[in-house]
Design a protein around this nucleic acid. Sequence first.
RNA 1: UACCCGAUGGUGUAAUCGGUAGCACAGCUGGUUUUGGUCCAGUCGGUCGGGGUUCAAGUCCCUGUCGGGUAGCCA
Length: 553
Amino acid sequence: MSEEEPRLDFIRQIVADDLKSRRHAGVVTRFPPEPNGYLHIGHAKAICLNFGIVQEYGGRCHLRFDDTNPAKEEEEYIRAIQEDVRWLGFDWGEHLYHASDYFEELYSYAEALIEAGKAYVDEQPPEILRDERGSLTEPGTDSPLRSRPCEESLDLFRRMRTGEFSDGAMVLRAKIDMSSPNLNLRDPVIYRILRQTHPKTGDAWCIYPMYDFAHGQSDAIEEITHSLCTLEFENHRPLYDWLVKNLPVPSEPRQIEFSRLNLSYTVTSKRKLLQLVQEGHVAGWDDPRMPTISGLRRRGVPPEAIRELCKQVGVTKYEGVTDIQVFDGIIRDQLNSDAPRRMSVLRPLKVVITNYPEGQAEEIDAPNHPGNEGMGTRKLPFARVVWIDHEDFMEDPPKKYFRLAPGAEVRLRYAYNITCQGVVKNAAGEVVELHCTYDPNSFGGGGNKVKGRIHWVADAGAIDAQVNLYDHLFCEVDPSAGEGWLDNLNPDSLKVMHSKLELSLADLAHGDRVQFERSGYFTPDPSSTTQAPIFNRIVALRDGWAKIQAKQN
RNA sequence: UACCCGAUGGUGUAAUCGGUAGCACAGCUGGUUUUGGUCCAGUCGGUCGGGGUUCAAGUCCCUGUCGGGUAGCCA
């Protein structure tokens, strides 16, 4: 194996160059979520990038809550975000911060800006501000209050802080350039009056800085060297730089933008995710169908797989869409090598082996992993009555169907060959039981060569369990497109099965991941108990038979 | 119709600053296999268009096309 140096993405290239040129002694990054929702797979990309870089180059990564809008932010999210980042495998050490830690400092920066004649209080209503801002194609016009004396603005701003004015009565604006082609530079609002109890500062403040006035300065205060964010902030960079240059901040961070992670069949808009939760389309933020970190965790996706996805997707400025199947493939890869094999019959069909003596029973050694003897074996009971999956029987099978059918012979994995001799139906004409004979000489690979090998669970010792089969939440590749995005919710995104499991699955815990042979990878739901086991499907196995069928049609 | 950004096989990316367009996944074909899984081998397929500079252009210049972002007292 040649140990080839991995190519650097453009951000790592910049970091490496800066280190080489000694522009910085070390790297300091930060992950700055707003605590207004749960973290999702898109955030994982930013987390892996920011924490990954400092692991590789030496340095530190801060976790900083961007909590400048108490109208939307909640303590619950602050808690959940920390749990999710840790679970993903990253550690911010001592460096847990909040933008609100800097409210006092930010306030004094604002006063300094006013004193320098570079900010002013504007009490015009929002509609007027909007009109004066101009349009995408036309320059804005100056506010009549733009040239008011600094002292007047300073006085008003201080009184804004003391709560003398009502919400929205006036704002503080940076004085930059109303005719700039970049709308963010047209005297942006940097402070607004907002009477909301803040999760951290309570009612200490009734004015709050806007994102633009908080983020760069917070970076500078924390001596962040590389402030990495997504592409939609590209147009904000001139303002970011302007503020850093015009304020007495202790360092000069640099903002670099990269494209966010987009996955097919997935929404990663916090607003939409919140709506799914609030309107009950899913069972909560951690519903296993959600692309949230907590949802993926509950479904059983290992954190390594999420990190691997982020690694494979890379870091660029190109806004592509990654096929969700790539993620599924990564999860399978991970679990294929790690997960012990078990047998589980999702949709049980009873099989009576008519020539197997009643009262007889035996125990079969089954390997826990076909490719890894080191994982050992386990005992499987075998007797006259077994369960097989409904999918593994067809009364009138198509060509190339290797499984069970009237007169057909298949191998019960690790056990015997059986031949279907009779079909029992209920009043509705549905197949409810099969009568088969077994070949006593076929154990361990003997008997007729058969193409079909199916999984099974003996009725003796089987446990009943609920198994949740999850599929993509949406039917459309791009669910966000259009207004009626909720219309393409996948009605089959959850199928609840009542299944028969082999006994060894009884005392698995959430996070213990196993493969149900020929089916998929599963883990117990956190709510699962020994008395009432519930398993979640993490991801299905690749289904070659489905592919063949699709071609036949 | 202002400004900013982007464009390499189906998808995600690489090409160390102008020097053989490579990797992974998916697809297809075959092999192995007590999972129609895994694994192995082979195969298909790409520099958005037009000019220019150069011995040589994915890379530099000009121009066009297409896509995305931006008019919150959201982040």
